[in-house]
Nucleic acid binder design. Structure first.
Lengths: 208, 208
DNA sequence: GGGGTGGCAGGACATTTGTCACGGTTGGTT
DNA sequence: AACCAACCGTGACAAATGTCCTGCCACCCC
């Protein structure tokens, strides 16, 4: 597969869930052409750690404290262009895949299917291939881009945890009327009946 | 640690997320006193698989399709009393721990902390010990039992995905007024301001 | 210049939601 | 028997929510 004395692939691993993180690090370490040179648990630790460890491939979870793996991917592209980025996530949301590609990711894996896929994906990413689940790619194309404007997305995101109109208006420095209008627009565009359904729909599509 | 020719510990693994499942199976298989004799991906496959494979320890995720790992644990206690149950979950919700104990579980692990804990927990469970994170135990005690009645919980659960009062009343065959009253009671008991916050609070405590 | 889109806000209105007070039934305790 | 808790329902009311309309400004594109 690889030449016996090929240089090892240096991997950065970003994953907040402890058991998953250490399991992946252990398993990847078993591959003799892969070395995990850094592991981080927060999104905002990705770039500093990458600048220090100079990995060939960064394996990033999306949902992490600090900042999203998607944001980290975009920043990595600018700060460490030679590093390939693989997104590894629980949820195969169409919008996530879209954003991952826009952030310059080399691949998009869901935390399903066997671990063997992982090492294979890392090698393929380093070879310059794009690694994407075909079914997911189809879903992302059919779902289309987010219909929400930035403000609508912001307001909807602020509403998910049960905040009232006046809470949101204070948090975003908008008038209550404006918040109403944005929420109404988001409800209309998502084809739902209230903010809760709208937020669920947006989240399901990765628009949030 | 164990006698060289001690019988291996037979483990059943129930976990729906593919990568986590295969990673855990692989890592546990590396321990020479542990053998993974069955893996399932759904809650309702736990008992049949256990009856066929006769494991010494069952390692159960909570959030699974089919049925909850907590329900599976309760059923296992009746159908295969010799089998120790370890609950392994993402969320250290106080109510989950409480319910796990009531279902006769031998231990409760969160998917944080290193994988090494796992093998140790399995050995300790088999030795008859209870394996519980002390911090979590304290939280479970201080949080107290759920203040919600069965109906309040049902109505709240039916409301989380954006259903309206009339949706819920149809689904549960109740009058709209009754649904209102239960929701209001749940909001009051959780000390929140609306159904969304109430549902979040209940979910956070594992009351849902 | 004109046209389109997005951000922002206000007003008016119907609907939904949350609260409260009340009455009734059932089942279990003391 | 008296009591309590949970269950189920009604009616009335205030507050929050969602919709629609209007208007203004800035920006970009043709």
């Amino acid at each position: 597969m690889t030449a016996p004395d090929a240089p090892v692939i240096r991997v950065l691993l970003a994953e907040d869930q402890g058991m998953m993180r250490s399991a992946l690090a252990l398993l990847l370490g078993l591959e003799d052409d892969i070395e995990v040179v850094a592991t981080v648990t927060r999104g905002d630790e990705v770039v500093p750690a990458a600048l220090a460890a100079r990995p060939d491939v960064a394996l990033l979870d999306i949902e992490m404290p600090g900042s999203s793996g998607l944001d980290a991917a975009a920043e990595l592209r600018d700060r460490l262009p030679g590093c390939r980025v693989l997104i590894l996530t629980t949820f195969g949301r169409p919008g996530y895949l879209r954003r991952a590609m826009e952030a310059g990711a080399a691949g998009f894996l869901v935390k399903d299917g066997p671990v063997e896929e992982l090492a294979a994906a890392i090698r393929r990413a380093l070879a310059g291939e794009k690694v994407i689940d075909p079914a997911l790619a189809a879903a992302a194309l059919s779902a289309g881009a987010s219909p929400l404007t930035d403000r609508e997305r912001e307001v909807l995101a602020a509403a998910v945890d049960g905040a009232t109109i006046s809470d949101i208006s204070r948090r975003l420095h908008l008038s209550e009327s404006t918040v109403r209008n944005y929420l109404s627009a988001a409800i209309g565009k998502t084809g739902t009946r209230n903010r809760i359904e709208a937020a669920r729909a947006a989240r399901h599509n990765g628009w949030l």
